[in-house]
Amino acid sequence: MNIFTYIMSPSSFFGAISQGLLWSVLAMGVYITYRILDFADLTTEGSFPLGAAVAAKYILSGYNPIAATFIAMGYGLLAGLITGFLNTKLKIPGLLSGILVMTGLYSINLRIMGKANLPLLKQPTVLTFFSDMGMTNTRAAMILGIITAVVVILLLWALFSTELGFAIRATGNNPHMIRALGVNTDFMTMLGLMLSNALISLAGALIAQYNGFADVGMGTGTIVIGLASVIIGEVLFGRTTVVRSLFSVVCGSILYRLIIAAALERRGFQPTDLKLLSSIVLAVCLSLPLVKEKYNRIVNRKNKVKESSQEPSLTKDDTLLKGGNPSC
């Protein structure tokens, strides 16, 4: 197909979609803190490799990969709890709380892994269930990604339709109001952070199994990837309801991977340029609303100039006659 020759090969295309689906779990985690709680949570960069490290370690110790993946989620939950504790109980600003936990987790991740990189060669993973059925790694990842994304969307949709879910949403939206209605906002913030980081660790666990290794440095830039997915998704696919937003975020995550894959493959970038590309993509997305406004203003001005140039002297004279300073 032509489109593949210009933009990317079919294999990178499907690879990008699989990756986008797996990474969408991270993006949904970021969505919970960034959008629902209105909390810029940098714990992400620590809880993502934490999930990878825990899953790899447990798989290598002979645990069932599914069990290992769930254990990884539990660790993420704890990371979120600590950030929440620092923020709500010790009153450390949210951004700083996240940075503290993220930094601390770097050492913890190294402790868990025992070294900086833990390969999962020839180990059973959540993907081998599918590849045992004769699927390629990419296809297996795609199926796993779809299942995970759908399950996570459904669970979050259900949760955010409950009394508790309403309270978490209101905590991010208007803490004064929901406190006045009898909700402990500290508790809700903690709950949201735990949920978010459990998902982010889940994403870390899945990506580690997809890539075949856990690396202590794999968390760097994940918050940017998550935010880019959230913002691309919401701008392009809408954000009227929670479930709509979640769906948008998943689409955003896929689209983000496609953009990156296209840039890497056909535009002469190297894999090491990935983080730079991530930042540029996010910067562009974040500035879109402003650019759009400026663009509209320029277009409007041009239209006005056109209108006035059609009958120039008349309008000018008219205003001079009617308005102006009465004293002159």
């Binding site: 949760l159 009394e163 909700v183």
Partner: peptide, 23 residues
Amino acid sequence: TATDMTIEENMSMALRRGKSRTL
């Protein structure tokens, strides 16, 4: 009010004022 939530969602939260939030 929670501005990003709907009128009915806001009211439902008010109906539960002082009660513990469950699933």
